[in-house]
Design a protein around this nucleic acid. Sequence first.
DNA 1: CTAAATATTTAGACTAGTCTAAAAATTATT
DNA 2: AATAATTTTTAGACTAGTCTAAATATTTAG
Lengths: 220, 220
Amino acid sequence: MPSLTEENYLKAIFVLNQGNEKKASTNAIADKMSTKASSVSDMLKRLNDKKLINYKKYQAAELTASGEKIAITIIRKHRLWEYFLVEKLKFGWDEVHDIAEQLEHIQSKELTNRLEDFLDYPTLDPHGDPIPNKEGVFPIELNETLSDKNENESTTIIGVKNHSTEFLKYLDALSIELGTKVKIKKINDFDLSQEIVIDDKNSKHISKEVADNLFVKISE
Amino acid sequence: MPSLTEENYLKAIFVLNQGNEKKASTNAIADKMSTKASSVSDMLKRLNDKKLINYKKYQAAELTASGEKIAITIIRKHRLWEYFLVEKLKFGWDEVHDIAEQLEHIQSKELTNRLEDFLDYPTLDPHGDPIPNKEGVFPIELNETLSDKNENESTTIIGVKNHSTEFLKYLDALSIELGTKVKIKKINDFDLSQEIVIDDKNSKHISKEVADNLFVKISE
DNA sequence: CTAAATATTTAGACTAGTCTAAAAATTATT
DNA sequence: AATAATTTTTAGACTAGTCTAAATATTTAG
């Protein structure tokens, strides 16, 4: 069994390496985990010894099959618990991240599977992120963001990349939620900010950073 | 915030000292926590420094008001989660202890309170143990055990002292559950084992150790 | 009341994980 | 290709918690 800390490292590496390119550098991991590069360096050696990652000095880390399995299990638990917190306990989507961050480390396969059954096998968590099944298979991949779209295109918001309370509250203020239709009226050349129309009604102005963090329905 | 380990020590001390007498000796705690007396000795010093317990060398430990508050919160969370696991996820009463042992350390008052609301404010957990409310008040105390009863007395099982899977499975085999009526037909002088009649139907023979671990309805 | 048995504490070492500061390697820039 | 900037690793120290073995208290028994 990996320790709680090891689980968090594996999860961070999984998330950083999503979209195939090896981006899990020592600094990137340190940044994501709010720790120091030297600590990460130590830990990468240990995870390598345990064959949970492939790691060579001065090169980015990659998960092995068994490391990835653990990472996906953590993500599965995190997302199932988030769904539980929002759907059953009526938390807001901006309130559940830190609690799920703790719940994801509860060890019991049986618990995870019964929870999934109790929740009627949800496929997406409250932020639109896909929930891997018992076998670790994700139902869909979220790839395209609103920034990838062009002027005059319409699309639907299906997920958020950033899960911070601040960002989610900002979306609430803009009346953007999952399922919201968005039409891009204009993209400003200077800062790539967008003028958008929400649900054919309200016009809003959003920065590129916001558009970067909104996943949209994949074209055709 | 106390660490997970500190929380476990506080809980152990609370449980040992239940029923007022100071029984939380170094060895008793070590035993309960499956650790060594020397480790306990170290920890008692630290908890004393943090004013979570009152402890003087060679004397049993007592919780301070703030230590007790923490212990009760842990117990509250443990019992609410056990109730959730049995009532909502349909676990057996013999399967939930280890999982609740993990869940009890999740930090979020809001979560505990919403969970309690979701469960409709249960007062007893699946083992008959009282669930303290938000203010830390227990609805009732379980005191009397079947060993305290005499020959020809009848009573009702309302709780179990030992929560181990083995004990609970043994009770299942005896068809003893919460609410079961028991009449003591005979107490053997030699080993204090009892001949009992369960629900006016089946006669069984149980050891003193089993009777010690069955809480019964308090007389009159 | 003294000796033996038992309980508790201390001393010193170990592990996991972290940090700072310095050294070494890699990458970028001229 | 040489130097500068950046990234990564190493060395050494620190904390929380644990352990074994030895020392010291306390309790029990004769």
